[in-house]
Nucleic acid binder design. Structure first.
Lengths: 112, 112
DNA sequence: CTAATTTGCAACCAAAAGGTTTCGTTTTAT
DNA sequence: ATAAAACGAAACCTTTTGGTTGCAAATTAG
């Protein structure tokens, strides 16, 4: 059972759950009520998010509140950022290349 | 068939492929030779990466070179960064925030 | 020309993912 | 005290995922 942050945020429903509880802690029912899948399905998603540390659960009477603990997203952030300069540099190169082409094409009157 | 960047980078093998070809374009065999799975398995991973725009293929004779096009990683970057302030500034506000929340949540209904 | 190299792709398979229904337990409300 | 609410978890099902072997097509080497 692979359980890392990359796999956790791969599912759109789980990203939606994160978006919801990032602003405020919510109970299981409060979260489940916002989706058109069953409570159990949400429970499973939350379990995955819990197991990889993105969520903690706080019990209060018969209710359980989900709280976001998004520190672990730095793993994703770090991984992506190591490529930022790469794609930025490539983009700059592409841009100047295209600018050059536009200039050339203007001279020759070639317009697509 | 879902094919988005989040799902594409969820697999560790695919992240490894990205790491390899980020530095230099490589042929199918060159990439496949670095893993202990079959060439076809790598081909499938590359296909997924291609379909979501993280890789382009450049044919050259009977060989095909994979090139990284990592601009789309900004989608991941943007998503993560919107939560950075959350996980950075979380702890100061946490106590009072939660105390206030507990009372409110009892009255809250569905969010749909 | 013929043989080897490089690759795409179909067919198939096991396991994981995402979903459901159902039931038990604990806490709250009447 | 009893009913309802909130939730965890087991059992089950279907689709997706990640892998395999095998074969055909195209290009290059000898």
């Amino acid at each position: 059972m692979r359980r890392d942050v990359f796999q956790a945020i791969a599912d759109p429903t789980r990203r939606a759950i994160i978006a919801m509880i990032a602003h405020q802690s919510l109970s299981v029912n409060a979260v489940a009520g916002s989706f058109d899948v069953s409570r159990t399905a949400i429970y499973k998603h939350v379990k995955i998010l819990t197991e990889c540390g993105l969520i903690v659960v706080r019990q209060q009477g018969r209710e359980r509140f989900y709280e976001a603990r998004l520190e672990k997203l730095h793993e994703v952030s770090d991984w992506v950022e190591q490529y930022r300069t790469f794609w930025a540099a490539r983009f700059d190169a592409l841009e100047s290349y295209l600018n050059g082409m536009q200039a050339k094409n203007k001279k020759k009157g070639k317009l697509k």
